[in-house]
Every structure is written in structure tokens, then in C-alpha cells.
Amino acid sequence: MNDKTRKILTDISTVTRDIEENYPELQKYLDETQSTLPQGGNQEAEINEKELKSYLEELKKMISEYNSKH
């Protein structure tokens, strides 16, 4: 795994934790958006950087849209 992919995964973890701690009502949507995360064990999991970036943006957008409505 390269540094760029590792950074994206760290950002995803940070935003996910923010949702869990500050936006519990949005947690139900996390399962729906996790389809882009690698499946399987560490040895067989493929990480698609483009999909990870897209997932990160989805999470950020979810928070942004929620904040604009509340």
C-alpha cells in the first residue's frame, strides 16, 4: 500500500469517527456507502484508490448536506 492510499484510509477513518461521535443519526448510512472498501483478508484485498477517494468524498458530502439542513 502506498503512502497516498494510506492517507486516504486515515482520512476515511477520521471522518467516520467524526460521524459516529457527532452525527449518530447519519451512522445508518455508513453501511450503505462502505461498498467501496476492500473485501476479504489483507492478503487478497484490493484497494482501488479512486474508489477510496470517492467514498471519502461521499462521507464529507453527507456531513455537509446534513449541516446545511440543520
Rank of each mutant, 00 (worst) to 15 (best):
E49W: 02
S54R: 13
S35G: 11
T5W: 01
S64A: 15
I47Q: 05
N48W: 05
Q27P: 04
T33H: 05
R17L: 12
N22L: 13
T14N: 04
L52T: 02
E25V: 10
I19N: 00
T16E: 09
E20D: 07
R17Y: 08
Y29W: 14
Y29P: 00
T16P: 01
E51C: 06
A45W: 08
D3L: 14
I63F: 02
Y29Q: 10
K53Q: 14
N2V: 04
N67D: 15
E49L: 07
S54E: 12
I47L: 08
N67V: 09
S35H: 12
I63N: 02
I12D: 00
K7P: 01
I47D: 00
G41R: 03
L9K: 08
Q27A: 04
N48D: 15
Y55V: 06
R6S: 14
L30V: 05
Y66T: 02
K60C: 09
N48F: 09
L37I: 06
D31Y: 04
E57T: 14
T14A: 08
R6V: 08
T5H: 00
T14G: 02
L37N: 02
L37P: 00
S64Q: 15
T14M: 14
K4M: 11
T10K: 12
E20L: 13
T16S: 15
A45S: 15
Q34V: 07
S54T: 13
T14C: 02
E46Y: 14
E58R: 13
I12T: 04
R17G: 03
D31H: 08
T14L: 09
M1I: 07
